[in-house]
């Protein structure tokens, strides 16, 4: 069976800047994939490219982008529109800025239904009320008439989710869906997303920078850095035994993991910009295990210890690099 979403060797350039470089990604039906990375790592851009939502200045190239086996890369805009919003949907970070302030939320949710189905108004209205109820909005009959400014951030995000799942999509891409929300509200929204995903057997791609969110929701995790996938493995082993030095360093820098230590371990240096991308491994300038080989040769993604790792010396269970010359 072909995967729900298959992306091979995706590259996105803005001018001379490589925002995304050689990203492979597959999502199976009923799977939760988390894409995690710091700002500028290309995690949002790669998903926007898949959805065809990038501005024209972004040049997208790939070997293959396919949804349920059908090619998306060469799809006509019309063919793409038939899928987007219906079979694959996206939720954005800031609910209050992503919603249109001039229309009630009920109208905005109904828009997706009107675009994809020819149904009588009363039936669409009933569907919208049911959807709002399903995503946990209290008093949905009244709330369909509410404008975004009359609702809290949490309720607006629930309205966004209702909009995204209106047509029963097979794949849902959520870009930092809870970053703008308080933790108690975040918890409710995440539980809702995962609940819907299980109930409907959707594929869910969750883009986030929050390692705690990843640990609590993901089945599989992809770690991105400077536009490349650095590591990919199932969630539990990733947190127990990160195989890439970047993942390991990132986890060490979490205050949660440094209890009792006065200082947090840090990653020296900064993410490479457009002008100073190294020829070798992109993480090499900041890596504690860097060697001459790292500077000379960019590592490919390969299997090691059951994970996909882009490193010449993947870390063993003790966190030590394997095969590194002493």
């Amino acid at each position: 069976m072909s995967p729900l979403l298959e992306v091979r060797n995706l590259t996105v350039d803005f001018g001379s800047f490589h925002a995304v470089e050689g990203v492979d990604l597959t999502v199976a039906a009923g799977e939760v994939l988390c894409v995690v990375g710091e700002s500028g790592s290309g995690k949002s851009v790669s998903m926007l490219a898949v959805m065809g939502l990038l501005p024209r200045t972004g040049r997208v190239a790939a070997e293959r982008v396919a949804f349920q086996g059908a090619d998306l890369l060469h799809a006509t805009p019309r063919g793409r529109r038939r899928l987007i919003g219906r079979e694959m949907a996206m939720i954005f970070q800031e609910p209050t800025t992503s919603l249109n302030p001039c229309y009630p939320i009920g109208w905005q949710i109904a828009e997706a239904l009107r675009a994809h189905y020819a149904a009588p108004r009363a039936e669409i209205r009933g569907r919208v009320v049911a959807l709002l109820g399903q995503v946990g909005v209290p008093a949905p009959e009244q709330r369909v008439r509410a404008f975004p400014h009359q609702l809290s951030g949490g309720l607006n995000q629930r309205a966004m989710i209702a909009m995204a799942i209106a047509c029963n999509p097979a794949l849902l891409i959520a870009d930092e869906p809870t970053t703008a929300l308080d933790v108690t509200v975040q918890k409710g929204v995440l539980d809702l997303l995962v609940g819907l995903q299980r109930e409907r057997g959707m594929g869910l791609v969750l883009i986030t920078h929050d390692m705690g969110v990843v640990a609590e929701t993901a089945q599989r995790v992809q770690v991105m850095y400077a536009g490349q996938v650095m590591e990919e493995q199932p969630a539990a082993p990733l947190f127990a035994h990160p195989r890439h030095p970047y993942t390991a360093a990132l986890l060490d820098a979490l205050p949660e993991r440094a209890e009792g230590k006065p200082r947090l371990p840090t990653i020296p240096g900064v993410v490479p910009g457009a002008d100073d991308r190294p020829a070798g491994c992109l993480f090499a300038p900041r890596c504690r295990f860097r060697t001459g080989q790292c500077d000379a040769e960019r590592p490919a993604l390969r299997m090691a210890f059951g994970a996909r790792v882009r490193c010449h010396y993947p870390l063993d269970d003790a966190g030590q690099p394997t095969g590194r010359p002493a």
Binding site: K187, E216, E256, R257
Partner: peptide
């Protein structure tokens, strides 16, 4: 608040809490 906070370490995670209201 503590139960809603996502933690990396499974041992820290609270069992599911039903968050209601605002």
């Amino acid at each position: 608040l503590l139960a809603s906070t996502p933690f990396v370490d499974p041992a820290r995670r609270a069992t599911t809490v039903a968050v209601r209201g605002e």
